[in-house]
Amino acid sequence: MSKIWTICKRELSSYFDSLIAYVMIIVFLGLSGFFTWLYGNTVFLIGQADLGVFFGISYWTLFFFIPAITMRSLAEETRSGTIELLSTKAVTDWQIVVGKFLAALILVGIALVCTVPYYITVSTLGDIDHGAIWGGYFGLLLLSAGYISIGIFSSSTTNNQIVSFLMALFIGMFFQILFDILSSSFTGPIGTFFNFMSIRTHFESISRGVFDSRDFIFFLSIIFIGLTLAQTMLSRRNWQS
């Protein structure tokens, strides 16, 4: 565990040293703030004290931002050869992958914490459903975790950051929107299956403040499968011939 934390700390400091972290937080706050307060269906237009607008926007901004955060994680290590240095130290491939996953998750967590003033502001405007707000934040965190693990897997397959970014977006696209579209054009078990595979279904359920074990199983499976595949890709040097 302490090894994972050591790797995570290094990743985090590299995010903050290279300005990726600041740019990501500022642009995220700017975009979500703009659409929550200033433009389109803002909180004022809807006239209700809730943050549904913000969660709807973040659902999309995080989808695009997370691949940008994770594209570097393993691709850059492979390109520069530092992966050889790291994996010959006393850590397992799993610890490397999980460390990098946690670092990206903490970065997204920090960005989300920066939006707490929205919550405070809205709660002073009227009666607010606190459960739904916490559910929404929690949903965003789970959604981010899922995309981060997909991003880390994409990053493990290549040594090119751009390929890694596009691949993460491509895989993410299925969960983000394609399965949702497919589920409405099929009926019966296939429709149910696509509906279950869509992140939107689970995200909406959680952000309504409903805690259903199926939603957790869905997100945890994505995280686990993504990280396991990433670990497998890292270990491929062992049997590659």
Binding site: S2, K3, T6, I7, K9, R10, S13, S14, D17, S18, S80, G81, T82, E84, L85, L86, T88, K89, A90, V91
Partner: peptide, 30 residues
């Protein structure tokens, strides 16, 4: 791995890290 110190070919390093931080990271990982 704990008992070996390894300097790979071409000496790959995290170029964005300060020396001391890097050595601390290596020490902790090992």
């Amino acid at each position: 791995k704990k008992k070996i110190g390894y300097l790979p070919e071409n000496n790959p390093l995290y170029t964005d890290m300060p020396i001391i931080d890097y050595l601390r990271f290596c020490a902790e990982v090992q």
